[in-house]
Design a protein around this nucleic acid. Structure first.
Length: 270
DNA sequence: ATGCCTCAGCTCCTGAGA
């Protein structure tokens, strides 16, 4: 089972690239994912291009809004028990979509940016992170096989930052944000990317400005966390930089995890 | 240099992203 996350920065603009990626997998992707969660669709639900995904062989669940935010979950097989946003947490932004696919609980999330430490948006980010953690804690009890993935807007450590000295303490790199990330890990989750040896200076986001991609000045802020119950099944986790080289690319690259759980539902019971 | 790109929207500027 292959799962992926991609912040597309407007699905209206990026739909052709997403469809192309699904239907003509890049070398890194190798084969089409079974699940893809999208962030920053920036489109209202009435305008979500569900037919295009149906035609591409995917079931779609979506939760959007005008101008900002917006998330979606695409799956080869039908998604069940769909949840939009964090239950019990009042939020006027569309940031979370969760569903069960082939026995795996998938949570796709667009974490708040936070703008700057001590800003109102940072306070909101911290509140949101606390609510997420409490909810994921409950979800894990109900669904031990769980994947939490999306645009976290948090670097895990200095390896995820192109210039950790210059960017120390700035948004995405603060101790508070990283402490929240570690609290998620302590629920029984693993940063799938770091379960494997990875090349140095690998990022998932590069600023559009100053030729940041060409100079590899980026951050790793898009993550896939997998639960204890899935850890032994993780085969690989990679970032696919190829779509970032497209014309009019998203500023984020997709992240992909492959699980060897294909026998979960088909193994004989002997 | 509170900017550099990119996107959306009450669109020819502004706010937000990260």
């Amino acid at each position: 089972m292959k799962l992926a996350t991609w912040n597309v920065n407007s699905l209206t603009v990026r739909l052709p690239q997403v469809l192309d990626w699904l239907q003509h997998p890049t070398e890194a992707l190798a084969s089409a994912p079974d699940v893809l969660v999208l962030q920053e669709t920036k489109t209202t639900d009435d305008k979500f291009p569900h037919q295009a995904f149906t035609d591409a062989g995917y079931h779609a669940q979506w939760f959007g809004q005008k101008t900002y935010n917006g998330v979606a979950l695409l799956s080869r097989t039908p998604a069940t028990d769909v949840v939009r946003n964090i239950p019990g947490f009042e939020d006027d932004m569309a940031r979370v979509i969760a569903a069960t696919v082939d026995g795996v609980r998938v949570i796709g999330a667009y974490f708040p940016n936070g703008q700057a430490p001590e800003s109102d948006k940072f306070v909101y980010k911290m509140r949101w992170l606390e609510a997420l953690q409490a909810w994921v804690h409950e979800q894990l009890k109900q669904y031990p096989q769980l994947v939490l993935m999306g645009d976290f807007n948090i670097t895990v450590d200095d390896r995820d930052v192109w210039d950790p000295v210059a960017l120390a303490g700035t948004i995405h790199c603060t101790d508070e944000e990283r402490a929240h990330f570690q609290q998620l890990i302590e629920l029984g989750l693993h940063d799938a990317y770091r379960l494997f040896e990875q090349p140095e200076k690998t990022y998932s986001w590069w600023d559009y400005r100053e030729f940041a991609f060409r100079r590899n000045r980026g951050l790793r802020i898009d993550h896939i966390l997998i639960s204890d119950a899935l850890k032994s099944q993780v085969q690989s986790c990679i970032i696919d930089k190829a779509p970032r080289k497209n014309e009019r690319p998203s500023d984020h690259a997709p992240v992909i995890v492959t699980l060897d759980n294909t026998t979960t539902h088909s193994s004989p019971s002997s």
